[in-house]
Amino acid sequence: MGGAGDTGWTGIAELELATDRAAVAAFAAALGAPAEPVPAELVPATYAFTVFSHPKVLAQLADLAAERAAALVHQAQDFVFHAPLQMDRRYTVAVDWKRHEERADRLTLRGRVRGETEGTFLQEFRAEIVLFENRERAP
């Protein structure tokens, strides 16, 4: 998901992702998972995606949508898991975005959970976003 020739990304922020037990349990419950994950130290695989709701990320997306007077539509997402996240830890997540050269109304939002070794990632995830413009005139 991030190899050679992977250019054109614009950084948004380096964000902290906390896997505090209560927050992880609330996330799991919202997904319909059992109240107590099995094993108890398991963080749901998609939990890191929650960094996309950080105010810095939402502000950047709002600015991009405003440029086109568009609404944001989440079209697709994908994940690559190199290692699971551990409960009650703090991780750094690099969040960035890029436009699609072939489609001006598309952008990709990317998050990468940093590992302890420089240049390694525990998880990588993306959201494909459509900037939907309502082209009909109001009556």
Rank of each mutant, 00 (worst) to 15 (best):
M1K: 13
M1F: 15
G8P: 08
W9I: 00
W9L: 05
W9V: 01
T10M: 10
G11W: 12
A18N: 08
T19L: 02
D20Y: 01
R21I: 11
A22D: 15
A22G: 11
A23E: 08
A25V: 05
A25G: 09
A25F: 03
F27K: 05
A29G: 08
A30V: 01
A30L: 03
L31H: 08
P34Y: 00
P37E: 14
P37T: 12
P39L: 13
P39K: 15
A40L: 13
E41N: 15
E41L: 14
L42R: 15
V43M: 01
P44Y: 09
A45T: 11
T46P: 02
Y47D: 03
T50H: 07
F52C: 04
S53Y: 13
P55R: 10
V57E: 01
V57D: 06
L58G: 07
A59F: 01
L61E: 09
L61M: 12
D63L: 07
A65G: 01
A66I: 02
A66K: 09
E67T: 05
E67H: 11
E67F: 08
A69C: 02
A71W: 06
A71I: 04
V73S: 02
F79Q: 14
F79A: 11
V80E: 15
F81W: 15
H82R: 14
P84N: 14
D88A: 04
R89N: 02
R90L: 11
V93F: 00
A94I: 04
V95W: 10
W97D: 13
K98H: 07
H100L: 10
H100A: 11
E102I: 12
E102Y: 12
E102D: 13
D105I: 08
D105Q: 04
L109R: 05
V113W: 06
R114H: 09
E116R: 01
G119I: 05
T120Q: 08
T120R: 07
F121D: 08
Q123E: 10
Q123P: 07
E124L: 13
R126T: 12
V130I: 11
F132C: 04
R137N: 01
R137P: 00
R137G: 04
A138S: 03
